[in-house]
Design a protein around this nucleic acid. Structure first.
Lengths: 212, 212
DNA sequence: TCGTTTCAGTGATTTTTATCACCCCGTTTG
DNA sequence: CAAACGGGGTGATAAAAATCACTGAAACGA
């Protein structure tokens, strides 16, 4: 068993052996440095990507270049949108960027249909991925639709801690403002209030989450 | 050929004959009066529904009972979420209500997997449905994330005109406020501004859209 | 080491949105 | 017919968020 096979098996324990064989043959690993844009709105989708290691941030961009954070993809996860392009002629409606150095497994879009039909475990994975992304998007929608900025910041911090597996976030106020489509001053002031209430501790270049 | 078969064929021209036969056998038509709640957050999903005639409004509800409009399902469309419940044990994350008297074709959730595997046209329909709903949700997200209330109202009116196939919307300010999670006064004032700019005409109980 | 840049704090002001209070006007209902 | 009710208009005020202008402190490159 190759090193690659082992890695796939441990991240995707439900994949059947024949599927893993097919992956060995047709999919390719790719290392991507942190902060690389891996997908941009309007770009054609030619392959789907499973995250093996690292972290990918998925966000929406408007015409003026504003960004809006949607969700993260961690190891074992995949982008749902790249799986719904039957023909490969559709363009992406979202943008994505690596948050860390990341390794992905790239699968040519032509294999999608074939594998869906032939490998039950792949079919289940795709359906489950759809649902998971949709649910996450609904969470994001909720926070922006129903909540004020202070609560949205808390939600944002909570999510980031979960996804990065740490309570110390290395992130600037400016970045948060950008991802929530707000302004730095607003974020700074609200973070200060959170700090006053003992929920976080503010340091230069990082935020310690105490209790949210 | 039965009347039902004809109707399915005309709305879903890509469905293969064998699939339509299977539908005749296992799916059932159901008439639902206007303003009925057909799905509620937290409810178990036991069937998926294709809209044959009428209109269904899909929205998100928060803990306090606030609503937030997501999109409409018209004839030939289906809810994506109800298609991703592999086991039938998952609960709905959204709510849905008929906007008009509506006829749906109900498909037992157990048939989903079987048909996905056996009928290519069903598989394609599901994938395409998934993508369409995701895209619409992204549109909704955009407007709330990037736009002010005046633009959001315009977007809301535009969408409603498209989906209802008319330029005269029978809708109260209160309803718009609810669907955009705002308040009646705010909506009234902004609508007035739109009317002053000649984009709409306000009448009691309806809004005529002139140019958006 | 010095200038420059990046990050963050903060006051002042404006814009946007929400909330409150109360109005009028049709329609429905008893 | 009178009262009750729902839809809608509007002023005053408050709260939330955005914008502007400026500050200082750390970090960094030359």
């Amino acid at each position: 068993m190759t090193e690659n096979t082992k890695q796939i098996k441990s991240l995707f324990p439900d994949f059947e052996p024949a599927l893993i064989d097919a992956m060995e043959e047709h999919a390719s690993f790719r290392d991507i440095p942190a902060e690389s844009v891996v997908m941009r709105t309007g770009q054609f989708i030619r392959s789907t990507m499973l995250v093996i290691d690292g972290l990918i941030k998925v966000y929406r961009e408007d015409e003026d270049g504003n960004e809006f954070y949607m969700y993260h993809l961690g190891p074992g996860q995949a982008c749902a949108l790249s799986m719904t392009c039957l023909t490969g002629s559709q363009t992406s409606q979202i943008s994505a960027k690596t948050s860390k150095d990341t390794t992905v497994l790239q699968i040519p879009i032509e294999k999608m249909d074939e594998w869906m039909a032939n490998y039950k475990s792949w079919y289940q994975f795709v359906i489950q991925t759809y649902r998971a992304r949709f649910d996450e998007l609904l969470q994001t929608l909720d926070s922006v639709a129903f909540r004020h900025m202070d609560e949205r910041i808390e939600f944002y911090l909570k999510r980031h801690c979960e996804v990065e597996g740490t309570n110390t976030l290395n992130i600037t106020h400016q970045e948060i403002a950008q991802e929530l489509n707000s302004s730095r001053e607003v974020i700074s002031r609200l973070l200060k209030k959170l700090a006053e209430r003992g929920k976080i501790v503010l340091n230069r270049h990082n935020i310690e989450v105490i209790d949210l």
